[in-house]
Design a protein around this nucleic acid. Structure first.
Lengths: 345, 345
DNA sequence: GTGAAAGCGCTAACAG
DNA sequence: CTGTTAGCGCTTTCAC
């Protein structure tokens, strides 16, 4: 059995409550404790290797100093970076409980239930997009009144705090940059479900295209798919290059929805002897780790996912402390990084 | 305030203890509860959206259903995959508390202290290699008697459970494979501190080289460094290629300590017009995600990090349940994957 | 079959 | 300045 406060108190010849105060350096009434007592208690605690039982403290104070963090997956850089940002800010005041739902609604619900049972002080979650699981988020907020921050996407018709990267801006600035480089025949290729985020990406692209006056030469290549496996990405990359091959006039710039898709496109280009950037400029979105490798050197839009994590954590801590932050979604601005897969026309 | 057991009991017209038994489906004495009572209690619990307070349960039973997981970093695929394996196995019985030490001894110690304070049921940790922090691991084991499993590396002179990939085998099989492909002038390049794992990697290489009878044509290029930043990796890659350039007879195969180092080497080769694999076969170790991209297609040694995580979690659960597993370190076997950066001579 | 009572380790009034 | 007391919500003997 671990050494308890009671034991410390006994050995220091004080009461448990005094010991508690001494250790935490807290004033019970108006005045402080005597320095002597504090010294004594702390010395005994030190000697016995006392570690307060945070469970008991949590039960008594109705606070656990832990937060639930639910992400979709660990694969790829995406949630990894968000998680990094979160742990950075949470440390050392809150411990993150980690859960992964892998886009399985059932799992998503269960993990949240665990968080509730563990009485975390707050929750940061990546909503899977599944309508089924909306109820559990509602329960967090309405029944348990736990602070909740969503990352990357909000839940339709559900007013909640959300921190995300600016999807509109990412395609907008990428496209604008391609325009600046002199490209007119620009294609934006993306696949996935018809979600709001898909739509926003398209809007950003179209916004820039209109400003550039390229409505007649630029276009979107969209493929509706349910999931996003590696294999599908590969064949989608082929589809894109096929599409571009048949298109007149010659497409000179290609914007892809994600860096990993861009890598696949680069692969296809290599197989077909399409030179990048001489024949085709290629641009991704996200700035994954491999993009900066000098033999890839992908031009891309840097999405500040660490920052998304940090801001989400900041916001959650505010909510936990009872502060009332702005109601507006927190949107993190992306920036363009030009490397070697794009060129001036 | 959340709905409590007491409340359920009251509404179901039974005592709290009966409610507790009914909900958990547990027999208090010899006989079971009446089906009627169970139905009633569960129905009320359901209706009120009862979520047991795991904190209180933990306090009463001296069990928290959570485990501490301390990793070095989230960057790169390494710990990400281990973590994935761990969460897979832990779910839904234990919740992982996540902590990252970034190789900072102070941080390492503090995070462990938090785990102790939270009374986790067990700990899985990646020891940073810092001698200073050994004491805290000793405390986990000897003072708090918490189950402890180390991943990837053990602590010298410290008997504990460790699960890791087989470092010896990874260089051994890689080298043997290069030999099979007809290579004689093989270089194994690595950098880092003079740790046991560094030594083991060299041993594996030397073991294969001896078997192949290549002691006169193969060699190790080792650079002693403290850390492993991206920038250092880049310049180390240059050093390697410089070294090979001056070496007679011509080196035909290069084995690198890690995939990321191999990527940097591929970059340098491209810059210097060294064709891979025509002029030089290149092989990495780990099988990171980018390695399988078709325009990288790195030949490498697949290290089963998911499996390391799963086995570590299995082992920890056994320890938590009071089982006594084998004392031998659990070593996960790697396997060679030949892609396009190596060729038959 | 079910309930009363004690207690897990800590905190927070409040009284001295 | 310090101690007493009463819980936090649940589990677990042990009676009934």
């Amino acid at each position: 059995m671990a050494v308890t406060l009671k034991e410390i108190a006994k050995q220091a010849g004080v009461s448990p409550s005094t010991a508690s105060h001494a250790i935490r350096g807290i004033h019970p009434g108006k005045r402080a404790l005597s320095g002597k007592t504090i010294q004594k208690v702390r010395e005994v605690a030190e000697r016995l290797g006392y570690r307060p039982n945070l469970l008991a403290a949590g039960l008594a104070r109705n606070k656990t100093f832990s937060v639930g963090v639910l992400v979709a997956t660990l694969r790829g850089n995406f949630y990894e970076r968000i998680l990094e940002g979160i742990t950075e800010v949470m440390h050392p005041n809150f411990t993150p409980l980690l859960a992964i739902h892998n886009y399985q609604p059932d799992r998503e619900r269960k993990e949240i239930e665990v968080f509730i049972g563990k009485h975390v002080d707050g929750i940061i979650a990546a909503y899977s997009g599944d309508p089924e699981t909306m109820a559990i988020y509602r329960e967090i907020r309405d029944v348990h009144k736990m602070p909740l921050v969503l990352v990357d996407r909000g839940i339709p018709q559900f007013k909640s705090y959300v921190v995300r990267s600016d999807h509109y801006m990412s395609t907008y600035i990428a496209t604008r940059e391609l325009g600046r480089l002199g490209h007119k025949n620009i294609i934006f290729a993306l696949a996935g479900r018809e979600t709001e985020s898909t739509k926003t990406l398209m809007d950003g692209f179209n916004g820039a295209i209109s400003e550039l006056g390229l409505n007649n030469t630029a276009d979107i290549f969209y493929k509706k798919t349910q999931s996003w496996t590696i294999h599908e990405m590969k064949s989608f990359a082929e589809n894109i290059i096929d599409y571009i091959g048949n298109r007149k006039p010659q497409t000179t710039a290609l914007l892809l929805q994600a860096d990993w898709l861009a890598y696949e496109v680069l692969s296809v280009c290599q197989d077909r002897n399409i030179r990048v950037p001489e024949d085709l400029s290629v641009m991704g979105i996200e700035d994954c780790d491999p993009s900066s490798l000098s033999f890839i050197s992908l031009s891309t839009v840097k999405v500040e996912l660490n920052e998304v994590g940090r801001r989400a954590a900041d916001l959650l801590i505010k909510l936990i402390n009872g502060e009332k932050p702005d109601d507006q979604p927190l949107v993190i601005k992306p920036s363009v990084i030009l490397r070697k897969t794009t060129r001036q026309l």
